[in-house]
Design a binder for these strands. Structure first.
Length: 256
DNA sequence: GGCCAGGGCAAAG
DNA sequence: CTTTGCCATGGC
């Protein structure tokens, strides 16, 4: 499948910190998600996505290729966000699997991105089928001891407890999709190891709730240093989460 | 070796 | 309702 969309930059998406299983591979990327694997390679005028033909709609949805990101622009009066946008343009908000997003962002707490990737790879390698992200049942059946062996540390009981809730239907991630933003956040926060920040990440990166605005240490620093008078969230109602990704990307680049 | 990382949680103020 | 200390581990 040839992809010619504007505002689509796999390199930036791979380093955006919303997914942890895009890996550079001979000039392109190997993407693992949705229980599948695909390859993205640059070609003149766009990118080529190699995958089974019947999977194409799924990957279009995953990469949010049918949205126009020209509609998600920073306010011209917001100088800092405009510069962040110049750097981050091409990042899209993925539609990841809710369970994978939930577990990976529980793992993410107090870890840097390379460490998160390592943990997720161990989890997939030990408990997943064919290297895919493990099912709720597979994690639920695992011992806390063994999970700790995957560098999860104090997060091991969180991951285990949350997987058990999902596996036993106490937390129905599919049914959660019908909830409004506030109810969804509350539902996710019932899981152990899930607070407001992790819930917002799952809302944004899996449920595509573009108003979700996760505040981690980087964003917190940015807001305090660059917006001492406050960040006007109302200005970006409907897509504040996209602006958050631009700010996060710029903060991690560290050149603003 | 010290500091930091896409935080959550329970206890205390 | 807002602070505070603790929680494991790896990268730099």
């Amino acid at each position: 499948m040839f992809i010619r969309q504007k505002d689509f930059d796999p390199e930036k998406i791979a380093h955006s910190g919303q997914c942890f299983r895009m890996a550079a591979e001979d000039g392109g990327f190997r993407v693992r998600a949705l229980g599948r694997c695909a390859r993205l390679s640059p070609c003149p005028g766009g990118y080529m996505l190699d995958c089974p033909g019947e999977d194409e709609p799924l990957w279009r949805r995953y990469f949010d290729l049918d949205s126009d990101y020209g509609a998600f622009l920073p306010d011209p009066g917001d100088e800092y966000l405009c510069r962040a946008y110049d750097l981050a343009r091409g990042v899209r908000i993925l539609r990841q699997d809710p369970f994978e997003a939930l577990i990976t962002f529980i793992i993410s707490q107090r870890k840097n991105i390379p460490a998160i990737r390592m943990c997720v790879e161990k989890l997939c390698g030990e408990l997943g089928e064919e290297g895919n992200f493990p099912s709720p049942g597979a994690i639920a059946a695992c011992s806390e001891e063994r999970l700790r062996g995957m560098s999860l540390g104090y997060r091991a009981p969180y991951v285990l407890g949350t997987a058990r809730m999902v596996n036993e239907g106490e937390l129905d991630l599919e049914a959660c999709g019908a909830l409004d933003d506030q109810a969804l956040e509350q539902a996710l926060c019932r899981a152990p190891g899930v607070g407001v920040k992790v819930a917002k990440c799952v809302m944004l990166f899996a449920y595509h709730r573009l108003d979700a605005f996760p505040v981690d240490v980087w964003i917190d620093r940015t807001l305090k240093e660059k917006y001492p008078q406050g960040f006007d969230m109302e200005r970006y109602r409907g897509y504040a989460g996209v602006m958050q990704q631009y700010l996060f990307f710029a903060a991690k680049k560290g050149c603003l």
